[in-house]
Design a protein around this nucleic acid. Structure first.
Length: 453
RNA sequence: GGCGCCUUGGCGGAGUGGCUACGCAGCGGCCUGCAAAGCCGUUUACACCGGUUCGACUCCGGUAGGCGCCUCCA
């Protein structure tokens, strides 16, 4: 078991994960008012694969990624589409499961829904009211920010500089502009509501994550993650709620992923410069999308565009080519094993996936340079192990069916033509095979058919 | 205006006080009947200006540009 260190947003330091007990990870998932875009996919991929890595290192790990299916945005989107908000949320939740499922990297251990956690949410709010950290006002319940000393410790901003914008008229119900809503009373036009000690209404944003995280992982748990745009106010408010209510920390490590950028600007549903995950998957397929997302360090911004995606596809093709010639199975030699260790060291060092990928490519090049070196035996075996941690193990399984009889007959005919040194005939057949989707590669041990990429 | 962050070669993207990141693309070569794959080589890369240092892309200060948050956002 390696020591795994992660950069903590709150302290700014690299913190080692505890090597005993369970690693609980809670990552903020999407609010389901529309299909998710590629930016939403980044935390899903990063945290799902981080959990996979931790498990492979022997850490007992439990990953929760929630779905926020109660939110103002859902009401707005539903009314625009003239459909019940619950129906829209259900539809978009299903689309989220489908889209992320197509990434072929597995799922989190638990994926709680806000609508299924209303009981714990109400209990948590009630505790905050009892403890004097929250107050009811006109059917709403607000968190009293000044009642919690640590407010601002995650986002490092002084309270005097901030204000919680709750929109139009909510301000008048607050005792302090800093306060934010835990519970919102039912309003005209909202077609869902739940009962509470403060009347019919619904949870505010933030509180659902505090409740779901505690319900699934206990408190404190190890890593709380999400996009860097959630640091303030979302995660700051989660800390305030959970820590004020329980008198102990919410999470030990705060881990935030950078934004995906289109042009120089962040991808955003409201700006409209989005690329839906499903579209990216349609065009490039899962392995390309995953390789693209892993090509940059999780904490840095990542440029989005055709170029980066196509480069990821080309890199994957290099891996496939290598695996065709070096199928996994053989016992690794010393150098191959050393590469595997460096690969895992990179992931243990603040989950440096681009550095890990370098180790994979360095191994490929070394093995291509010295195909018969015993210390590089089993390079394919080691590479497959690397790909499993990157969510790219499918690159090893050839993909698709083998050549059909028609293609094999053509290949046979071409071999015959080559025997006769009838090069024009051989090239003609090669073109025909290309039309069938096969690329011919002549090697020392005969010709091989490879699916055209 | 406040808080935080970024600026690396054609593109993406790591990293370090002095030693080739890596991948993709281009160019030249090897191999090949020709290709493909693979291998080798390759275009004075670190925004700008100062400073610290024997030495900075890497540390410090400033300038320019950009990004995130401060309002819903992964």
């Amino acid at each position: 078991m390696r020591e795994v260190r992660i950069r903590d947003t709150m302290s700014g330091e690299l913190l080692a994960l505890p090597t005993d007990g369970q690693i609980g990870i809670y990552a903020c998932g999407p609010t389901v008012y529309s299909r998710i875009h590629i930016g939403n996919a980044r935390p899903f991929v990063v945290f799902t694969l981080l959990a996979r890595f931790l498990r492979s290192e022997g850490y007992e790990t439990r990953l929760a990624i929630n779905v926020t299916d109660i939110n103002d945005k859902i009401y707005t989107a539903a009314s625009e589409r003239e459909m019940p908000s619950g129906e829209l949320a259900d539809e978009m939740t299903a689309a989220y499961f489908e889209d992320t499922g197509r990434l072929e990297i597995g799922r989190p251990d638990v994926e709680p829904l806000a609508t299924e956690t209303v009981g714990p949410i109400v209990d948590l709010i009630a505790t905050l009211v009892d403890e004097g950290h929250a107050y009811e006002s006109g059917g709403d319940v607000y968190f009293s920010v000044r009642s919690f000393d640590g407010y601002g410790k995650l986002s490092h901003r002084p309270t005097e500089d901030m204000e919680q914008g709750e929109g139009d008229d909510a301000g008048s119900l607050k005792r302090d502009p800093l306060d934010f809503a835990l519970w919102k009373s039912h309003k005209e036009g909202e077609d869902t509501s739940w009962e509470s000690p403060w009347g019919s209404g619904r949870p505010g944003w933030h509180i659902e994550c505090s409740a779901m995280a505690e319900a699934e992982l206990g408190q404190p748990f190890t890593i709380h993650g999400g996009g860097s745009d959630l640091v303030f106010p979302h995660h700051e408010n989660e800390i305030a709620q959970s820590e004020a209510a329980r008198g102990k920390p919410l999470a030990k490590v705060w881990m935030h992923n950078g934004m995906i950028e289109t042009g120089a600007e962040k991808m955003s549903k409201s700006v409209g410069n989005i690329f839906q995950l499903s579209e990216a998957l349609d065009v490039y397929g899962p392995q390309t999308v995953v390789a693209y997302l892993m090509s940059g360090h999780y904490r840095q911004p990542l440029a989005f565009g055709e170029g980066p995606l196509e480069q990821a596809a080309a890199g994957n093709e290099r891996i496939r080519n290598f695996l065709r010639e070096n199928p996994p199975g053989e016992q690794p030699g010393s150098e191959a094993e050393a590469a595997r260790e460096r690969f895992r060291d990179a992931l243990a060092d603040d989950y440096n996936s681009p550095r890990a990928m370098r180790e994979a490519f360095d191994l490929i090049r070394s093995a291509n340079q010295r195909p018969d070196a015993p210390e590089l035996a089993g390079a394919g075996t080691v590479l497959l192990g690397m790909l499993e941690l990157l969510g790219l193990e499918a690159l090893a399984s050839g993909g698709g069916e083998g050549p059909d009889q028609a293609a094999l007959d053509l290949l046979e005919a071409r071999n015959a033509a080559r025997e006769d040194k009838d090069w024009s005939r051989a090239d003609e057949i090669r073109d025909q095979l290309a039309d069938l989707g096969w690329e011919v590669r002549d090697g020392a041990d005969g010709a091989r058919l490879v699916p055209r990429s």
